[in-house]
Design a protein around this nucleic acid. Structure first.
Length: 892
RNA sequence: GGGCGGGUAGCUCAGCUGGGAGAGCAUCGGCCUUACAAGCCGAGGGUCACAGGUUCGAGCCCUGUUCCGCCCACCA
C-alpha cells in the first residue's frame, strides 16, 4: 500500500483503529513461550472490571506499552500479560446500586442469583476497559487475557489458601478489626483511610459512686460511652490516685464502672481520665483485655445501636450521638465542648466512617512472608525505581500486622473452609469435602465469606502464567522483567506480590519495579469528579488523537514527580504529531521519482548530511540511555527537539535545493538520506507514538512490513562527527545572526538583501563559501560576499553583528536607519560587555586559576578571547554607525 | 508527631554526577517563503521561596526559616 503521497492532514480517527486491528490480525502482540529470543515480560496492573479508563490508567499503560514496544524492537520475546480484576467490594457495590434502582437488595435476591447478576453485569460491561486500553494502543497479548476469578486463577487462589493454612500462615481468629457498616464487611488495616475531620472533644462528668465528686473524661465519640466498662487514669497521676479502685456511675445508663490505672493513659491529654470502651476501640480493647473488662457491643454491624444501648437501641450511631449529648446536657453531665481536629478512619471503597469491632475473621500471618519480601529487596533481587520508594516499602513491611483476608461480601473467591455441624471441626482442602475429616459427619457448611480481592491480585504474576501447573510460560517469563505501577498500590499490591511470589515460586515476581507518579490537574489537585477537574483520556483521544495524549504523558513523566496535566499541553504536543506528518509529506513528495534508493555512504561528502547522521547517532544513544533508566520525559523531549528543531528546521530546509535541483546524484542522496533518517525517527518514536509512526512507515518506499517488526537502530560510532557538528554550528549561527538582524530591523522576508561576511580564518572562508547557497536560501539573501577581514572594506550602511569569528554585515543601503541600528548595537554591546566582564573577573581571580580544573580554565579563557574580539569588533562598528548618524544629522 | 516531595519566565514544567539558567503554552513584532498558519522567522520576560554556610565557583551540596502537597502513626 505504498501510495507515494500523503493526505494533507493526519486523520487519526481513521488511522488508529485500522492500525490496531492490523497489528492484532498479524499477531504482533503475541508472545511465544517457546521462543529462543531473550524474554521480556510485564504483567499489567489489572484494572477493575468496573473501571473506566482514567488518566492514571492512561499513564500507567502508556509507559508499559513504551517499554514493551521498545523491547520488541530490540529483539526480545515480549509478553505483556493483560487482564482484569474482579474488584470484590467495588463491583458488588456497583451491582447493588443497580439493583437498588429496582428497589431490590442482594439479600432479597439471595446469594446464588445475586452472583448470577454480577456475572451477567461482568459479561456486559467487563470488557469496556479492555476496549479502552486498545484505544490507547496497548500492545498486550490479548490471547492470554485473564480475569482474577476465571477458572485457572481461582484454582491458584485455592491452592495458595490451602497451603498457607497447612503451613500455619493462615488462621481464623477473633480479633479487633475495622468494619465498614455500609459495605457490611471487615476491612484490612490498609483499606482504612484516615481523614482529618473537624470534630469536638466532649468532656463528660462521671460521678463517683460514693457521691464524693466525679471524674471528668474527654471523648470524641460520646455514643460509645454506652459500651464503657471502666475509666482509666495514669497510675502516677497524683490528681486521681485516690480514685483508683473506686467506682464511678456511667451517666444515662447508671452502670458501675471501675476506675483502673494504666500507663497507656496520657496525663497531658484532655482531663487525664480516659473512658474505656473495649468493644469499639483498638486501644480500649487492649486495655480491656489486660484488665479483664467486659466487652459490651453497643453498635451493630450496620451502624445501628444494639439492645445493649438501652433506650438508645435502634438509633443510627450519629443520631444516637446527638441524643446522648442532649441528654447529657440535660442531666448536667456535659462539662465542656471543645473544637477538635482529629483523624477518623474511612472505608476506602465507600468512604463511610469505619467502626472498630471485635470479629471472627481469617488472617494471613504476614510477618514471615514480609521478612522474605524485605530480604529480596535488600539483596537487590528486586530493584525499586526511584529508590526512594524502597524506604516506604521497608517501613510498611517492618510494621505490618496480620492481614485480615475474609470479607463478608458475596462477590469473590469463597473461602475454602468448611465447618462440621457435628463436631465443629474446620476443614480446609483443595477438594470440596463431603464428610468431616474428624467425625465423618456430613453436616458440613462452607464458610460464607469470600477473600479480599488483593489476595488474588497478590498471585497475579504467577497465576496468570499457569501456576500451579509448571508451564512453558512460567519458565520463560517468570520472574517478570519489570512491574510498572503507581505508588498508591505499593502496599496493597506490590508488597503482597513480593510476599506471595517469593513464598510460592521461590523467586521474586519481578526484577524491577518502576513506580510512577500520579496524574493531577494543572493546579496539582487530584482529579476527581466532585471537583470537576477530570481530564478524560477517552475524550482527549477522540479530540487530539492517542499519539498526542501518549506523547504528552511521556514528556511529563518525570521520575518522582506528579504529572500535572493540562489540555493546552496536549494540544501543544498534537502539533508535534502534525509536524512529523508534514515532514514525512515533504520527504515522500520528493521520493516519487526516486528509482533506486541510494546507498548511504558512511561519511557523505556534504556537511549537512554528515551533520544529521552524526546527530542521529547521538539521539539513538540518548534514547536508549533514557529508556534504560526510565527517564521517559527525557526520551520524549530529546526526540521532540531533534525532530523539530534539527531535522525539520535545518536539515530538511537545507536539502531542499538538492531535492528540487538538477544534479541527479545530489538529489538521490538527499532523497535517500532524508528518508533514511525519517525511517529511524519513526522507529525511535514508535514506542511513544505507535499509530502515526506505523501509518508513515507503511508509506515509506524503503520499508517493508510493520514498524513493529523493525529493528531498533544501532548507533554507528563511525558516523559520529564532532567537527561536522561544529561546522554546522557556524553555518546555523551565521544564518540566525542575519535573521535576527532582519527581524530587529524590520526587514520584510520578501526583501532579499545583500550580506557581507568577513572571516578571521581561511577555514571559515572556505566553509562559508561552500555553503553560500544554503545561507542565501535560509537567510533570504540577494547576494553574499565572503572575504577575509583584511581584504574587504567594512560596509558602511549595514547592520552588523559578530558570531563564531565571523563579522556579519547586512547591507541596508537606503533603508538603514542609523538611529535604530545604533540603539540595537548599544543593546547588544551591553549584553556582551557584561558577559565579558564576568569572564574577565573570573580569570583575574587567583583562587579560580589555582583551584579550578584546567579544562574549565581553558574553556573560560577561550570564552574571554572570543568575547573580547566580538566586543572589539562590535564597538568599532558602533562607533562608525554613530559617526554616520551624526554626519547624517548635520546634513539635514 | 514522624517521613517524603516541591517552591525556577505570566502559566505548566525541564535542568541527569556543582562551571553563571531552558522548553511548551501565553505575550509582542514580521511573514500565506510550493511539508506544515496545528506553520515559519524574530523579540521581550527570571535577585532559580527566604536567610546563612561549604566552595575558586551553588538553581544544584549543608543548616535554618517559611509556604504548599502527599504518605505514615492507637493519645481518647
Amino acid at each position: 500500500m505504498k501510495e507515494g503521497s500523503l493526505p494533507k492532514a493526519y486523520e487519526f480517527q481513521e488511522v488508529e483503529p485500522n492500525c490496531y486491528s492490523y497489528w492484532e490480525r498479524e499477531g504482533f502482540f503475541h508472545a511465544d513461550g517457546n521462543s529462543s529470543k531473550p524474554p521480556f515480560s510485564i504483567v499489567i496492573p489489572p484494572p477493575n472490571v468496573t473501571g473506566q479508563l482514567h488518566m492514571g490508567h492512561a499513564l500507567n499503560n502508556a509507559l508499559q506499552d513504551i517499554l514493551c514496544r521498545y523491547k520488541r524492537l530490540k529483539g526480545f520475546e515480549v509478553l505483556w500479560m493483560p487482564g482484569t480484576d474482579h474488584a470484590g467490594i467495588a463491583t458488588q457495590n456497583v451491582v447493588e446500586r443497580q439493583l437498588a434502582k429496582e428497589k431490590l437488595s442482594r439479600y432479597e435476591l439471595g446469594r446464588e442469583s445475586f452472583l448470577q447478576q454480577v456475572w451477567k453485569w461482568k459479561e456486559k460491561y467487563g470488557g469496556i476497559i479492555i476496549k479502552q486500553l486498545k484505544h490507547l494502543g496497548a500492545s498486550c497479548d490479548w490471547d492470554r487475557e485473564r480475569f482474577t476469578m476465571d477458572e485457572g486463577l481461582s484454582r491458584a487462589v485455592r491452592q495458595v489458601f490451602v497451603q498457607l493454612y497447612e503451613e500455619g500462615l493462615i488462621y481464623r481468629g477473633k480479633r479487633m478489626i475495622n468494619w465498614c457498616p455500609r459495605c457490611m464487611t471487615a476491612l484490612a488495616n490498609i483499606e482504612v483511610e484516615g481523614e482529618e475531620i473537624d470534630g469536638h472533644l466532649y468532656h463528660i462528668r462521671y460521678p463517683l459512686e460514693n457521691g464524693e465528686g466525679a471524674l471528668v473524661v474527654a471523648t470524641t465519640r460520646p455514643e460509645t460511652m454506652l459500651g464503657d466498662t471502666a475509666v482509666a487514669v495514669h497510675p502516677d497521676d497524683a490528681r486521681y490516685s485516690s480514685y483508683v479502685g473506686q467506682y464511678v456511675v456511667l451517666p444515662l445508663l447508671e452502670r458501675r464502672l471501675p476506675v483502673i490505672a494504666d500507663v497507656y493513659v496520657d496525663r497531658e491529654f484532655g482531663t487525664g481520665a480516659l473512658k474505656i470502651t473495649p468493644a469499639h476501640d483498638f486501644n480500649d480493647f487492649e486495655i480491656g483485655r489486660q484488665h479483664q473488662l467486659d466487652l459490651i457491643q453497643v453498635i451493630s454491624e450496620n451502624g445501628i445501636m444494639t439492645e445493649e444501648a438501652g433506650l438508645y437501641a435502634g438509633l443510627d450511631r450519629y443520631a444516637c450521638r446527638k441524643r446522648i449529648l442532649k441528654d447529657l446536657e440535660k442531666g448536667g453531665y456535659l462539662v465542656k465542648v471543645e473544637d477538635y481536629k482529629h483523624r477518623v478512619g474511612h472505608c476506602y471503597r465507600c468512604k463511610s466512617v469505619v467502626e472498630p469491632m471485635q470479629s471472627l475473621q481469617w488472617f494471613v500471618a504476614t510477618r514471615p512472608l514480609a521478612e522474605k519480601a524485605m530480604a529480596a529487596v535488600r539483596a537487590g533481587e528486586t530493584k525499586i525505581i526511584p529508590s526512594k520508594w524502597e524506604k516506604d516499602y521497608f517501613g510498611w513491611l517492618e510494621n505490618v500486622e496480620d492481614w485480615c483476608v475474609s470479607r463478608q461480601i458475596w462477590w469473590g473467591h469463597r473461602i475454602p473452609a468448611w465447618y462440621c455441624g457435628d463436631c465443629g471441626e474446620i476443614i480446609v482442602s483443595l477438594q470440596d469435602p463431603t464428610e468431616c475429616t474428624k467425625c465423618k459427619g456430613s453436616q458440613l457448611e462452607q464458610d460464607s465469606d469470600v477473600l479480599d480481592t488483593w489476595f488474588s491480585s497478590a498471585l497475579w504474576p504467577f497465576s496468570t502464567l499457569g501456576w500451579p501447573d509448571t508451564t512453558a510460560d512460567l519458565k520463560k517469563f517468570y520472574p517478570t522483567s519489570v512491574l510498572v505501577t503507581g505508588f498508591d498500590i505499593l502496599f496493597f499490591w506490590v508488597a503482597r506480590m513480593m510476599m506471595m511470589g517469593i513464598h510460592f515460586m521461590q523467586q521474586v515476581p519481578f526484577r524491577e519495579v518502576y513506580v510512577h507518579a500520579l496524574v493531577r490537574d494543572a493546579q496539582g489537585q487530584k482529579m476527581s469528579k466532585s471537583k470537576g477537574n477530570v481530564i478524560d483520556p477517552l475524550i482527549i483521544m477522540d479530540q487530539y488523537g492517542t499519539d498526542a495524549l501518549r506523547f504528552t504523558l511521556t514528556a511529563l513523566a518525570v521520575q518522582g514527580r506528579d504529572v500535572k496535566l493540562s489540555e493546552e499541553r496536549i494540544e501543544g504536543y498534537r502539533h508535534f504529531v502534525n509536524k512529523i506528518w508534514n515532514a514525512s509529506r515533504l520527504v515522500l513528495m520528493n521520493l516519487q521519482d526516486l528509482e533506486v534508493v541510494e546507498e548511504i555512504p558512511r561519511r557523505p561528502e556534504r556537511l549537512m548530511h554528515r551533520w544529521i547522521l552524526s546527530r542521529l547517532q547521538r539521539m539513538i544513544q540518548e534514547v536508549e540511555e533514557s529508556l534504560q533508566n526510565y527517564h521517559f520525559n527525557q526520551y520524549a523531549q530529546t526526540l521532540y527537539h531533534f525532530v523539530w528543531h534539527e531535522y525539520c528546521d535545518w536539515y530538511l530546509e537545507m536539502i531542499k535545493p538538492d531535492l528540487y535541483g538538477e544534479n541527479p546524484a545530489a538529489k538521490r542522496l538527499a532523497q535517500s538520506l532524508a528518508a533514511e533518517v525519517l525511517k529511524d525517527i519513526l522507529i525511535l518514536l514508535h514506542p511513544i507514538m505507535p499509530f502515526v509512526t506505523e501509518e508513515l512507515w507503511q508509506k515509506l518506499p524503503q520499508t517493508t512490513g510493520s514498524v513493529m517488526t523493525a529493528t531498533f537502530p544501532q548507533p554507528d560510532d563511525q558516523r559520529l562527527d564532532a567537527s561536522s557538528e561544529e561546522q554546522m554550528e557556524v553555518i546555523m549561527e551565521v544564518v540566525s545572526a542575519i535573521r535576527n538582524i532582519r527581524g530587529e530591523m524590520n526587514v520584510p522576508p520578501s526583501l532579499r538583501v545583500d550580506v557581507v561576511c568577513l572571516c578571521e580564518e581561511p577555514s571559515g572562508i572556505s566553509l562559508l563559501q561552500s555553503h553560500a547557497g544554503t545561507i542565501i536560501d535560509l537567510a533570504r539573501l540577494a547576494n553574499l560576499r565572503i572575504a577575509h577581514v583584511g581584504e574587504h572594506k567594512k560596509p558602511r550602511a549595514a547592520a552588523s553583528t559578530v558570531t563564531k569569528g565571523v563579522e556579519v554585515h547586512v547591507i541596508l543601503q537606503d533603508i538603514l536607519d542609523f538611529e535604530s541600528e545604533s540603539k540595537r548595537l548599544a543593546k547588544e554591546l551591553g549584553k556582551l560587555e557584561k558577559e565579558f566582564g564576568f569572564a574577565q573577573k573570573k580569570l583575574s581571580n587567583e583562587d579560580f586559576l589555582a583551584k579550578a580544573p584546567v579544562e574549565v580554565i581553558e574553556k573560560e579563557r577561550e570564552k574571554e578571547l572570543r568575547l573580547a574580539e566580538k566586543v572589539d569588533k562590535l564597538r568599532r562598528h558602533y562607533d562608525m554607525i554613530n559617526h554616520l548618524r551624526e554626519s547624517a544629522a548635520m546634513e539635514e
